[in-house]
């Protein structure tokens, strides 16, 4: 093995270079959000927090933030509930059509966004649902189901079915067993799924762009701001807040996922 390790000496250097490539665009936003100059270019003019301070007073921004939180929260709960039951079925039971069903729920991951967005818009309008937060929620639930299923499947994978059997034998009902045995054990997985699906919804742009109508979510609001060079520093500050928030959520989600894996 160690012989294998020493081959290709350039590979470690490449890996480090690749990380720089991955992180440069992500770290650039926070770096320039503290820049006093309004143009995003070197040299940096000086340190300021005023772009952040200005964010607090912008009503349209705060409203779109609220919209995003609502959409993210509701979609996360819906997708996680769907994912919870489906994942349990996939891990625990053998039934006809299981593989097809498993493949189907993963489909939203690979359909091009513009096709989902345009077809949902047409569908929703034909059944009388105007572009609104409800429409975005339905769309985001669709998009986030695969994430919920994947996370819940790994939570159930670690779950020992004999615990449930023991509960049945001791006289618990099906619902009682689920509530008092199954649910507490997979709870960290549920938290992790909620956080991940929330993050995906919170960052999603193209569906919301088509379906939000006059109730923009945060990415749609940012899209409308990108076009104005004068708003650039504020957009950078806002973007930096979002980056920090997403990473924080993800680290929390990862913590809970690990805990759920360790528990059994």
């Amino acid at each position: 093995m160690s012989r294998l390790l020493r081959s290709f000496p350039g590979l470690s250097a490449y890996a480090v270079f690749y990380l720089v490539f991955l992180y440069t665009p992500v770290l650039l936003l926070p770096l320039f959000s503290f820049n006093e100059g309004t143009i995003v270019a070197f040299p940096i003019k000086g340190f300021t927090l005023k772009w952040y301070a200005e964010l607090a007073g912008q009503e349209a921004l705060l409203r779109s933030l609220l919209n995003s939180v609502i959409v993210g929260g509701v979609s996360a709960v819906l997708a996680t509930s769907l994912g919870l039951f489906a994942a349990r079925a996939y891990v625990r039971y053998r039934f006809t059509g299981r593989e097809m069903s498993e493949a189907l729920v993963m489909l939203p991951l690979v359909v091009p966004g513009i096709i989902v967005a345009s077809s949902f818009l047409v569908l929703f309008l034909s059944v009388g649902l105007k572009p609104s937060l409800t429409a975005v929620i339905l769309g985001h639930t669709f998009l986030t189901v695969p994430f919920a299923v994947a996370i819940m499947k790994s939570a159930f994978d670690e779950f020992d079915p004999s615990l449930e059997e023991a509960a049945y034998d001791l006289g618990e009902t099906v619902i009682g067993t689920f509530r008092r045995v199954t649910l507490p054990i997979v709870a960290p997985g549920i938290v992790s799924s909620l956080l991940v699906t929330f993050t995906v919804s919170f960052d999603e742009f193209i569906l919301a762009f088509f379906l939000a109508g006059d109730q923009p979510t945060l990415p749609v609001y940012i899209w409308s701001q990108i076009r104005f060079p004068a708003k650039l520093p504020n957009t950078l500050a806002l973007g930096s807040c979002l980056l920090a928030f997403s990473v924080l959520l993800l680290i929390t989600a990862e913590y809970f996922r690990r805990r759920s894996a360790k528990r059994t």
């Binding site: 489906a86 079925a89 039971y93 006809t96 189907l104 939203p108 077809s119 949902f120 047409v122």
Partner: peptide, 27 residues
């Protein structure tokens, strides 16, 4: 087992299946 498994996976399958088939049909 089989019907239980199907019942549990039905909501997700139907939701995704419906939102794949219906928009496609409308398009």
């Amino acid at each position: 087992e089989a019907s239980q498994g199907m019942a549990l996976s039905a909501p997700a399958t139907l939701y995704v299946g419906l939102l794949v088939a219906a928009p496609l049909g409308i398009l």
